[in-house]
């Protein structure tokens, strides 16, 4: 079994980078089994294709605007993950959803995809999360860990140095 955990976002724009901060914290706090690859996808689309293709499980952490309280975590799976090529003007502009669309077209889509979307507060220019979103970061990581445990993978906290 091959699991990919993909954190996406722009770390220069405050909460936009929450997905990347989440996977970084995941790596800091936990020892992960060999089957799990963690990718800091930044804002790339197609550049991640190679690492994502053929995975059995894909867990994504990303910033998601759904008009909720900042820091709200939403779990989406399968068809709930929006916009497989769903933009009218640009069915072929390559972002995360388009990368998934391309994988689908190519029969390389991971069997299970789960997205944790975190509601942002600010996209100002800063490399730090806002306090509201920052306070939820460990909960995002706990959610990712819970998903791994659900599919039977052993995840152990790192010992405090």
């Amino acid at each position: 079994m091959h699991v990919v955990i993909l954190g996406v976002g722009n770390i220069l724009l405050t909460d936009e980078g929450v997905g990347v901060h989440a996977v970084n914290q995941l790596l800091e706090r936990f020892d992960l089994p060999e089957e799990v690859d963690v990718i800091d996808g930044g804002t790339s689309g197609m550049d991640c294709l190679d690492q994502v293709s053929g995975a059995d499980y894909l867990l994504i952490a990303d910033c998601m605007r759904a008009k909720k309280e900042p820091g709200t975590i939403t779990r989406l799976t399968g068809d709930q993950i929006p916009a497989f090529f769903k933009t009218r003007i640009s069915p072929h502009q390559v972002g995360l959803s388009d990368m998934l669309g391309a994988l689908n077209f190519h029969d390389m889509l991971p069997k299970t995809i789960v997205l944790f979307g975190i509601e942002p507060k600010s996209f100002e220019l800063s490399m730090e999360l806002t306090p509201e979103v920052g306070a939820k970061l460990s909960e995002v990581v706990d959610n990712l860990v819970a998903e791994l445990k659900d599919i039977g993978l052993a995840v152990t906290p790192k010992r405090a140095a």
Binding site: V8, G9, E16, C63, R88, I89
Partner: peptide, 15 residues
């Protein structure tokens, strides 16, 4: 200047 946000069921392109 990539901003990369998942929009929850919103039309993101306007003509």
């Amino acid at each position: 200047c990539a901003v990369h946000v998942v929009e929850d069921n919103q039309e993101v392109v306007q003509v």
